[in-house]
């Protein structure tokens, strides 16, 4: 006899295949502990999803008194990107927590690297150790990933990458930002563990966890996880991750009835196309199937 969760898992896998992507999913009911598993222990590329761990490390440094999130800093080295400080032209000075807002809600690369430079690698390693996220590695800043992509494609700047990718005879093969061994990587299960710690006030002080949950709830993107929950009965907080062919999102979906489901969804397509709405939407479709199945279970 196949359980409802197994059926949901096959439907999710079929939905991924129908749009030409491969998917990895872990979804956990934060109160009942039931879970939906699709290759949830395989290594996946985080892309910008790592910014959730980065901001958590920032708040833990604040909790420890090592820094103050209201401290204002300038962004001297401006990492390329299409949003936030990355896209701005003039000098800025922002508090660390407002940089965190831009890094999470808009996936601002310059803001994230400014935070990373402030927080340091050791604080991230300590966070991963203490939460037991043994399969997660975060060696790269955003600028390391953009540099790797420029080196792999031979593009002169980030704006030239897309054109180079479409002319590249080997497609997306061999890009280091797509290889979990060579970039920030984790597993879907490690990422739902991070979300559970944030939603249960274990990842940092309760006020800090609440601040991070607020930032994830302010994320502006409607096209992935949120696309599966187009009604007021659901609240969605998430963080996307995007590198060529890779479309990810992790987040927590809460229902008016009190249900809370942590989801980590990672996808990979062979197509170098930057705009692939069906590959974005399937993340919402898969999340909806998972949440419905977990709530019914």
């Amino acid at each position: 006899m196949t359980s409802a969760l197994d059926t949901a898992t096959s439907r999710i896998d079929a939905a991924f295949r129908a749009v030409g992507v491969r998917g990895w999913v872990h979804a956990v009911d934060l109160d009942g502990g039931r879970e939906l598993v699709l290759r949830a222990d395989e290594p996946v590329v985080l892309a910008s999803v790592f910014k959730v761990a980065l901001v958590t490390a920032l708040y833990r440094r604040h909790d420890a008194g090592a820094l103050d999130v209201t401290e204002r800093v300038g962004v001297a080295r401006r990492t390329a990107g299409a949003t936030g400080v990355s896209a701005m032209l003039d000098p800025v000075q922002l508090s660390l927590r407002d940089l965190a807002y831009l890094a999470i809600a808009l996936s601002d690369n310059a803001a994230a690297d400014a935070l990373f430079d402030t927080v340091g690698d050791a604080a991230l390693t300590e966070l991963l150790d203490e939460l037991g996220l043994a399969r997660t590695r975060i060696p790269q800043r955003c600028r390391d990933m953009t540099d790797a992509l420029l080196a792999d494609t031979g593009a002169a700047d980030v704006d030239g990458v897309q054109a180079r990718l479409q002319e590249r005879p080997t497609g997306l093969a061999g890009l280091s930002v797509r290889d979990p061994r060579r970039t920030n990587a984790s597993t879907p299960r490690d990422m739902t563990a991070l979300l559970a710690a944030l939603w249960d006030d274990r990842a940092a002080a309760p006020a800090s966890c609440a601040a991070i949950r607020r930032l994830m709830g302010l994320q502006v993107w409607p096209h992935r996880l949120a696309s599966g929950f187009p009604d007021d009965g659901f609240r969605v907080a998430g963080k996307t991750g995007t590198v060529p062919g890779v479309r990810n999102e992790i987040g927590v979906v809460e229902h008016a009835d009190g249900a809370r489901v942590a989801l980590a969804l990672f996808t990979s397509a062979d197509s170098p196309a930057a705009t692939l709405p069906q590959a974005d939407r399937v993340i919402g479709t898969a999340a909806r199937i998972a949440v419905d199945a977990l709530r019914a279970a």
């Binding site: 299409a82 704006d159 897309q162 002319e167 974005d280």
Partner: peptide, 21 residues
Amino acid sequence: AAGRPAGRFDVRTRPADSLLS
């Protein structure tokens, strides 16, 4: 030859699809 046809614009990513968004 499969170059970009003349007169078309360079392919650019939209913010929601941009690198590391």
